[in-house]
Amino acid sequence: MLENANERGIDVENFFKVAHVRHPCERFISAFNYLAKGGASEGDAQQAQVHGIDRLSIDEFVTHITNREWFKKGAPIHFIPQVDYLFYKTDGVFGGRSYSRDRPDGTFGVDMVLCQDRWEEGLERLSQRMYHMILLQTMYNRQNYAEKRITCRDLQKETREMIEGIYAMDYCVFGYHSFLSDSDMCVGSFMTPEQFTMKYEKCKEEIKNDAMLNPWL
């Protein structure tokens, strides 16, 4: 939608942009399992084969991601950090795209953040912003899984810590801890786009000064 928007006569400034975020570790597990099962297209299956997802355990796979350059060299989009999608960054994974140059690095690019782990709360906020427009009931439906899903608590400690390092910016900017808690609030319910922009810079500085996390900037 944003690519070459001006050339196509689309005034994105008048769009109300919404995105939802997810706990980085839970998202990683979901992406891995999705591709390990073949995904939903031939392209997904090819990505799984190229990156060994179809034959490696999640513990083995995570060791192949050694620094941020992995994301810039054809990594499956399912694993790209969420900050790369929601902030304007000329030096990021999508830095070559025209819309990345429209704003200073680190400018937040959406108007409202919903959280997958607080789905109904997010939809209620969205409905209020849309002047209480009735959202489709199917949007409220959550998928029921017949089999028990692996969560971050089930991973080996070393694997979980590696994921926390890889997605340090996601954890910091969106306020996630190692594990989800029923008491956690969605960061989008109390932070404005301007506050997200400031939080991005603060997190970037903190991670820059951490020798263990610095390779992931």
Rank of each mutant, 00 (worst) to 15 (best):
R68T: 08
E69C: 02
E69Y: 06
F71Y: 15
K72S: 13
K73G: 02
K73T: 13
K73F: 04
G74K: 10
G74L: 11
A75W: 12
A75L: 12
A75T: 06
P76A: 10
P76Q: 07
I77T: 13
I77M: 11
I77W: 10
F79I: 05
F79S: 03
F79V: 03
F79Y: 14
F79C: 02
F79T: 02
F79R: 01
Q82E: 13
V83L: 04
Y85Q: 01
Y85C: 00
L86E: 04
L86K: 06
L86C: 06
F87E: 00
F87S: 00
F87V: 00
K89Q: 09
K89M: 13
D91V: 03
G92T: 04
F94P: 01
G95N: 07
G95W: 02
G96H: 06
G96V: 00
R97F: 07
S98T: 12
S98I: 06
Y99S: 07
S100K: 08
R101H: 14
R101Y: 04
R101F: 11
R103H: 14
R103P: 00
R103Y: 14
R103A: 06
P104W: 07
D105Y: 02
G106T: 04
G106A: 07
G106K: 04
T107H: 09
T107I: 03
T107V: 09
T107W: 13
F108N: 03
G109Y: 02
G109V: 00
V110Y: 15
D111P: 04
V113E: 01
V113A: 02
L114K: 02
L114F: 07
C115L: 07
C115G: 03
Q116A: 10
Q116W: 11
D117R: 02
W119V: 01
W119C: 01
E120C: 01
G122L: 09
G122K: 08
L123I: 06
R125W: 05
S127E: 12
S127M: 11
Q128V: 08
Q128P: 00
Q128D: 09
Q128W: 01
R129I: 04
R129Q: 09
M130R: 11
Y131A: 10
Y131G: 00
H132M: 09
H132L: 08
H132Q: 08
I134G: 00
L135S: 04
L136V: 05
Q137T: 04
Q137Y: 09
Q137D: 14
T138S: 14
T138N: 12
T138V: 08
N141E: 15
R142A: 10
Q143P: 01
N144G: 10
Y145S: 09
Y145R: 09
A146T: 14
A146Y: 09
K148S: 05
K148P: 00
R149T: 09
T151H: 15
C152G: 15
C152V: 03
R153N: 09
D154E: 11
L155E: 04
Q156S: 07
Q156R: 13
K157A: 10
E158I: 12
E158S: 13
E158A: 13
T159K: 04
T159L: 08
T159H: 02
T159Q: 01
